[in-house]
Design a binder for these strands. Structure first.
Lengths: 169, 169
DNA sequence: CGCCTCATGTAAGCAGTTACATGATTCG
DNA sequence: CGAATCATGTAACTGCTTACATGAGGCG
């Protein structure tokens, strides 16, 4: 699962620009995927030069022009390959867990600050994701809802553990 | 937070070999970090050539020799820099969420198989982590326990969402 | 007047993966 | 007798990040 797979999937649903795609990553995908512009645009370029996607320019008034990409038959086949590949297990890199693991090397006051910051960050994220659920939940498929719920419950569970944990320190 | 930070932290606690470190990644760190041999050994080499760590060879009988690494003063300073850096938010790449998000492109039977496999994988992981908790919990610091709990609760929450979700499909 | 949003991209660099290569010992 | 564990490493590649570069329009 890498940028090209996600991009192909998105383009299979709807024509999009690089900017649109990146925005999508920050919203619905924020929990399970992220990528920078420096990844999105070169990936699009590469996919286009191999005829997996097709570019057309949309002239807009009052706004800069947009490069709208659409998936080709060849691109759909490539996406199909991804879908048939084995499901990889979640890949997580958690800096907060790292700080907790090496907690003995940080003084208690700093540790409390770190945890409290993480708690409030988590609260924000939970609210954001729940907001998305109420806004778009109606238009989402059952499985899409499940993926969003996984994100919500992940942050909620981390929040809970941190709140309980801070009491015992 | 990258391989070199984790390795320095581990060596600050105890002298270790590349093999030991990789094993540790597969156990206690499995939830929040992973890295292959192809990353561990080159990282050690680089750290050593810059005098952040020091190598000594341990001759073993019946087993291959070991390269035991210990952290230097310079290395401790570098680790200190990491500890003073701002805490980055969790970075997650979840292939299962991706499959769920693009569920409309997979047939229902396949989707059920994918979910069921993920459920049993999650169950295994939860058992493993809980086993670790009972085994090593006594020797772990409060914050180390919290990091392990975050891992356990993450997998438990994902398990729960998938089990609930599968009923509704 | 300055910041935010919209919009597209490049260049340099690096961190990390995959695959390969080797070899002794122990256990079932 | 084969598989697993212990143990170390390299080479080629690649995906991604960071930082840079540009510029128009809207909003307060």
């Amino acid at each position: 699962m890498q940028a090209k797979d996600v991009i192909l999937g998105l383009l299979k649903k709807k024509d999009m620009s690089g900017y649109d795609i990146k925005k999508r990553f920050e919203e619905e995908f924020s929990f399970f995927f992220d990528s920078s512009y420096g990844s999105v645009y070169p990936t699009l370029k590469k996919l286009e030069s191999n005829q997996y996607i097709h570019k057309k320019t949309l002239i807009q008034e009052g706004k800069p022009n947009k490069h709208l990409f659409s998936i080709t038959k060849k691109g759909e086949e490539l996406f199909e390959c991804y879908l048939e590949s084995e499901v990889k297990r979640d890949n997580i890199r958690s800096d907060i867990c790292m700080r907790l693991y090496f907690g003995e090397f940080i003084n208690k006051k700093q540790m409390l600050t770190i945890i409290k910051n993480t708690i409030s960050q988590n609260e924000k994220t939970v609210h954001q994701l729940e907001h998305m659920y109420t806004l778009y939940g109606g238009n989402m498929s059952d499985t899409q809802k499940i993926s969003l719920e996984i994100g919500i419950e992940y942050h909620k569970s981390q929040l809970q553990v941190l709140q309980d944990g801070i009491q015992k320190l």
